[in-house]
Design a protein around this nucleic acid. Structure first.
Ligand SMILES: [Mn+2]
Ligand SMILES: [Mn+2]
Ligand SMILES: [Mn+2]
Ligand SMILES: [Mn+2]
Lengths: 218, 218
DNA sequence: AATAATTTTTAGCTTTGCCTAAAATAAAAA
DNA sequence: TTTTTATTTTAGGCAAAGCTAAAAATTATT
């Protein structure tokens, strides 16, 4: 398997994030990467020559099977590193993403395999996102938005969206963590906010918060 | 503290390796980096503009105090990562160097500090090389070449030179590891090879092997 | 001290990856 | 179906980091 530049890998990752296996527009990609459209046009041309993407001018860019494989391998590394940073080094789950963006580019199959073992073959990262397997298979994407449940149900938080540092701060101040269990006490018909109850009391969660927090019944 | 490219950091590291605080010739640097002299001339000019080195044309390049600080911080990371890979992930001490050359460029003070803690505040890496402290202080460089001892003395292996994979293979087949203790049985007046004795028997070590293995009396 | 050999620098080119401004194309509105 | 607007591509530049070949400076040898 050839070796790629960091920039190339970031484009592949962005494409996977935005479109998965579907085509992505030049503009969306430019926005995500944080570069101008003209730069993106050239970049994807280079990726096309390496058979990582198919480019249809004026129409969009789409990952090839090769590109998808690469995207998943980068995502696997990213999420394994996040898991390492949180589980082993004691970082907060809100701090690890930027660091993982560096570490995801380290090239060594052996390292990834050993890290995977060292971490106990995890299926999900500290935010509850699935860690792609060695062969590209994806573990299930866990949970539904909290607002999707009905009053009276017992739920467990299993995943949160990466919705920025303010979101994580809010989770922190409200003491909400993966694994926490609550009872859905009520759902407001007015603004869709949700009242959650735990052993220590109960509190209301805004619709915006709920939309980024995923849970399963349990 | 500003951020540097991988290439810049590799130049700084090479300069520190070759000359420490002393000036280094263009040719030596070129050889070490694996680039042509003309490329090196330009590269050090760039480093000069960032006050990481002082360049005297036709004479040589020398790290500034800033450059030395950077060199040590990279070396610290390199050796901490090697320690992590061997102690925590179970890599062999002969496999970790190339990986550490990638990992040493990851930028995060916080990560380094936490890793240092996680590893138990190590003073030396898996090859016995000193790990620079946070403030730039260097732990002692351990040991003397095995040939420097006299017959009858008890020694413990504390450090090995990075003398290539064949050297490590030889150490491996002879079962020589850091921490092993031996008695110096004899030193050949003919070829300076050394006879070492342990509980399991005794064997001869060539002068070339001895020159790359360091020990202390004990 | 003069010449020869070695080392270093300069000059000119290449690729990656980004930029701005202008031209071309596609999509939306009239 | 034109015309206007938005998106995308082309054209032309720039900096980092490498290269080769030629010129200049230093070092070594007669
Ligand atoms: Mn992340
Ligand atoms: Mn990245
Ligand atoms: Mn090393
Ligand atoms: Mn390196």
């Amino acid at each position: 398997m050839k070796t790629h530049t960091e920039s190339e890998e970031n484009y592949i990752k962005a494409l996977y994030h935005l479109g998965g296996e579907q085509p992505v527009s030049n503009g969306d990609l430019a926005q995500r990467i944080g570069a101008k459209g003209s730069s993106v046009t050239q970049a994807v041309k280079r990726l096309g020559q390496k058979d990582l993407v198919n480019v249809v001018p004026y129409k969009g860019v789409q990952l090839t099977p090769q590109g998808i494989r690469l995207a998943k391998s980068i995502l696997r590394k990213h999420r394994l590193w996040e898991t390492f940073l949180v589980d082993k080094l004691g970082f907060g789950w809100d701090e690890v993403h930027p660091l993982a963006e560096q570490l995801e580019h380290i090239q060594s199959e052996e390292l990834v395999d050993r890290m995977f073992q060292f971490l106990g073959s995890p299926k999900h990262d500290p935010h509850g996102d699935p860690i792609p397997e060695r062969d590209g298979q994806m573990p299930p994407v866990l949970g539904q938005p909290i607002g999707a449940f009905t009053a009276g149900v017992e739920i467990r938080i299993v995943r949160v969206e990466d919705a920025g540092s303010e979101f994580f701060d809010q989770l922190d101040t409200m003491n909400i963590n993966l694994g926490n269990t609550y009872k859905i006490r009520a759902i407001s018909a007015f603004d869709s906010s949700v009242e959650l109850g735990s052993s220590t009391g109960s509190f209301w969660l805004s619709q915006s918060m709920c939309a980024n927090i995923y849970a399963i019944q349990s």
